[in-house]
Design a protein around this nucleic acid. Structure first.
Lengths: 350, 350
DNA sequence: GTGAAAGCGCTAACAC
DNA sequence: GTGTTAGCGCTTTCAC
């Protein structure tokens, strides 16, 4: 049987409220009393019961984190960073996985709502209006989706997509495909919009293929369409799809980058390990995880500042892109860091 | 303000205890009353407060999951499977990361102890005696470590290591290196023990290198030692290290598998995507996650059956292993499934 | 089958 | 600075 506040009170000869204060408002307790209480608590192995505390304060010191797919390598660095940031502030994180299914997101948020102080919604597939509705039931921070009136953390994928298209264009590619992400993904829409306009500006054709599952298989599945489309370069929604696509293209007898150049997005750890090494747009996922936790916890202090932060992305040129058939402009934006909005200094990539 | 049991009682004209029963013991409530209460609850958006429930029942319906490194690709499939299995049984999972640091594991277990019904300790680096001590404070299921008297889920890595060494031996390799894992890892010791005996049985030399960080960098770092050791084949503690090692060997001008064969362990998703594709020992991580959750939740029913389950592993032969200088025996165990102990049928790999 | 009452472990006014 | 008191939302005896 674990020790309660009453055991500590008895042993240290004070009232339970003094014990309570020792833990929740130490400055209100005489230093001497405090150390005696602390000693007894230590000795009894006492730990405040968070459920009891939550019942009365209304704060659970728990955070919910909902991701589309834990096993998608994009998420673990985000989860890890969020967990670490939360723990540092004495919060614990419930991690849940929606299996890329928009319809379970709502249930998950509601199921979590009662036992957390807020929910980090990462890459939600549900509608904006539903998100807004849920935000009235539990504090929400939305990651990977822009939404007015709510605190959000997004990567500047528009800038990233532009850098990628410009890079391909600079290499002489004029017929480019965009392999889109899943339905309901804000990021995918954003990439599409930005890639379109960048392609137009560069006098290139952009063929959009999708929506698709944002997985390796999803990428592999479109290889044939890519070949049929007759493009010489591809921008994929994420690295996993890019890698699957390269796999698929290879199976179709296409060489990357000699026949087709491929660019991914995210710069997951994996992208440095495949052959050819993937050219990709790096997104600061760990920073996003930390920022999201900070925003959620700051939220309580001042309800009116619903900050929206945009984290910068950058193009990482590796081996999956090469010269295309068109004229090369050597204004190659390789390695150039995208401009970003908002206060990102403290969330620099590790 | 969220609806409480009292709101529902008022609206449906019954006493709060009837509402309580409707949710926690529905069979004790008149069918008609029940449906009326349910309707009101639905209408008010009532959800039982778990903290309040936990306070009185002592069961939180939460589980803690402690892993060495969320971002290590070995863990996400395990986390995902555990989370899914738990949620299906109406449990939520706190995920925490120790950063491969044995000293934080203890704190983490204790911090979690009060707000969970049990903890899944995955790949613990702490001592056996400390694990036993903690198991007296909170129900524990230990994954990736054998420990008498506690419920455990392990992969049969001994069998896996034997298959790997036999495979290399069959290919004619007689000078083999084992790249060990981190200090404190039961799995690493197990692999070592088994690889040693398999090598001896096959008249091969086994050089052990380590301990090492179980990461890509850790693998890359030993490439030079491998070359100096003059071995023709390597078994690595895990795929990540194997991949890093291949990277490092390539940088040293060695070809894989022509000059050196490399075998990994785990069969993470990544191992199919690198070039050469990795020969490896597949461990059923998702099954382990499910099994661990089941064992923890079953634990309550019958305290005396501290089951220990061992999940079978199998060798997956891909492209990172090839013929060595010695005589080939064509008794190649490729694809053969290892024998396993315990009841594993219901945890078959997905 | 339902109501009444007690209390899980803790915090938050409010006295003193 | 510390004790007293009244619950937080719920489950669980025990009556009826």
């Amino acid at each position: 049987m674990p020790a309660t506040i009453r055991d500590v009170a008895r042993e240290s000869g004070v009232h339970i409220s003094t014990v309570s204060r020792t833990f929740s408002a130490p400055h209100l307790v005489n230093a001497e009393t405090r150390s005696r209480v602390l000693a007894c608590a230590e000795h009894l192995g006492y730990r405040p019961n968070r459920a009891a505390r939550a019942l009365i304060t209304g704060r659970t010191h728990n955070i919910g984190l909902i991701v589309a797919d834990i096993a998608n390598p994009f998420f673990p660095p985000l989860i890890k960073a969020a967990e670490s940031q939360a723990r540092q502030r004495d919060y614990h994180i419930f991690v849940t996985d929606t299996n890329e299914d928009a319809s379970v997101e709502e249930d998950l948020v509601r199921a979590l709502a009662k036992q957390v102080d807020g929910v980090l919604l990462c890459s939600p597939r549900m509608s904006n209006s539903l998100i807004e509705q849920l935000s009235r039931e539990v504090p929400l921070v939305v990651v990977n989706r822009q939404l007015t009136g709510l605190p959000t953390v997004v990567m500047d994928v528009a800038q990233g997509a532009r850098l990628a298209i410009d890079h391909l264009n600079g290499l002489g590619h004029r017929r480019i495909a965009l392999v889109a992400g899943p339905r309901g993904s804000w990021t995918s829409r954003e990439i599409r919009r930005s890639a379109m306009s960048a392609a137009r500006a560069g006098d290139a054709d952009l063929t959009v293929i999708g929506p698709n599952q944002p997985t390796e298989d999803g990428g592999m599945a479109v290889a044939e369409q890519i070949v049929r489309a007759g493009v010489t370069a591809v921008l994929a929604y994420n690295d996993l799809m890019a890698i699957g696509l390269i796999e698929g293209l290879t199976a179709q007898g296409q060489r990357v980058p000699e026949d087709v150049s491929v660019v991914g997005i995210d710069d997951i750890a994996l992208s440095r390990l495949t052959r050819p090494k993937l050219t990709t747009v790096a997104t600061p996922t760990a920073a996003a995880g930390r920022a999201a936790v900070d925003m959620l916890l700051a939220h309580g202090d001042d309800r009116r500042t619903t900050a929206q932060i945009t984290l910068q992305t950058e193009l990482v040129i590796r081996d999956s892109t090469g010269p295309g058939p068109g004229p090369h402009s050597h204004a190659d934006p390789g390695g150039v860091v995208a401009t970003a909005l908002g206060d990102v200094a403290s969330y620099a990539k590790e």
